[in-house]
């Protein structure tokens, strides 16, 4: 009998078409190597700096590492530094306020982005003409290419011209939010759009056949089937807006956020405290995302 690829089962076919074990191991090694090089090592360096007492020249990057090899032997000093840095952050109202502001801003931005971005993504997906859809997507992409400081400045000018000059903290909050939504909207639109394109059209037809109008279809099928795309869009937006520096600095009117705080500490050469703040932010993000994952 002839061996025919069509006659094989789906699973056997997948096995035949998948890369071999060696190739997979090689790919895995590259991924792990890059992850360690670009994500784990910087994080470890930040942590090391955060537990070393240095007020150093920001240009001398290697200094804290030397410093730490000296101090690592002295456990007591490290404990003192940890108490100094971390307790300082946790007990200082300005840092707590910064955290609070950033988290609230992040959540608000994410929600607003979702409310605006989801309908946009859905409408783009529903454009039947290929050319028009490509045009709309490229318009969004091009606006996305403009650097965020320029966009933030443009936003300030627009707000000024219509008479809004943020003085009150609540107004400032509003403008920061507006700026971040403006900047991060594409990060919501594209993942959701991609998730929507993956929904098989026959599902939508089946729903309609089974008695659902357009609104019900959207809530019962479109949302559940694209929930992963929506979730990843939200996580992406939240993380980016949590640590954002440019927008709060430009339109924020000195409202403390995590980004501005860290930037300020770096510019005053308190690397140790800046890194402590970063590490706490990372931890905070991990905790929030874990809660998010458990919930959804």
């Amino acid at each position: 009998m002839k061996l025919n690829l069509h006659s094989l089962g789906e699973k056997t076919k997948m096995k035949l078409l998948k890369p071999g074990r060696k190739a997979r191991n090689a790919m895995l090694t590259i991924v792990i190597f890059l992850t360690i090089l670009f994500f784990a090592i910087p994080l470890i360096i930040s942590f090391v700096i955060s537990i070393s007492k240095t007020n150093l020249d920001p240009n001398a990057l290697i200094e804290p590492i030397i410093q730490i090899t000296n101090t690592i032997s002295n456990f007591k000093i490290i404990i003192n530094i940890i108490i100094d840095n971390y307790i300082n952050i946790v007990s200082n109202t300005i840092y707590i306020a910064a955290f609070f502001n950033s988290v609230i801003l992040g959540i608000l931005t994410t929600i607003l982005c979702l409310i605006i971005g989801l309908p946009i993504a859905y409408s783009i997906h529903n454009i039947n003409t290929e050319k028009i859809r490509a045009f709309v997507i490229s318009i969004i992409l091009i606006s996305f290419l403009i650097p965020s400081p320029i966009r933030a400045n443009a936003l300030i000018n627009i707000l000024n011209s219509i008479g809004i000059k943020p003085k009150q903290p609540s107004e400032t909050f509003f403008t920061i939010c507006l700026g971040m939504v403006y900047c991060y909207l594409p990060f919501v639109i594209f993942p959701i759009y991609t998730a929507l394109t993956k929904i098989d059209r026959s599902y939508l037809e089946a729903v309609s056949d089974l008695g659902c109008g357009p609104t019900k279809t959207f809530w019962r099928i479109v949302i559940p089937l694209s929930i992963r795309g929506i979730a990843s869009a939200c996580v992406l937006t939240f993380i980016m807006s949590l640590g954002d520096l440019v927008i709060p600095e430009l339109v924020g009117n000195n409202i403390p956020t995590i980004g501005t705080m860290i930037s300020e500490l770096f510019s005053t050469s308190d690397w140790s405290l800046a890194c402590s703040l970063s590490i706490i932010t990372v931890l905070l993000t991990i905790i929030l995302l874990t809660i998010f994952r458990v919930k959804f």
């Binding site: 098989d200 089946a206 309609s208 056949d209 089974l210």
Partner: peptide, 30 residues
């Protein structure tokens, strides 16, 4: 009439069963 108002149901070639639901949930959907 739109499909959701017609007294007609279709069994699709791809079946179009909703992957995020169980068997009874699929059946009771309509």
């Amino acid at each position: 009439w739109p499909p959701y108002k017609r007294p007609v149901n279709m069994m699709f070639q791809s079946y179009a069963l909703f992957p995020h639901m169980t068997v009874p949930q699929n059946i009771e959907f309509g």
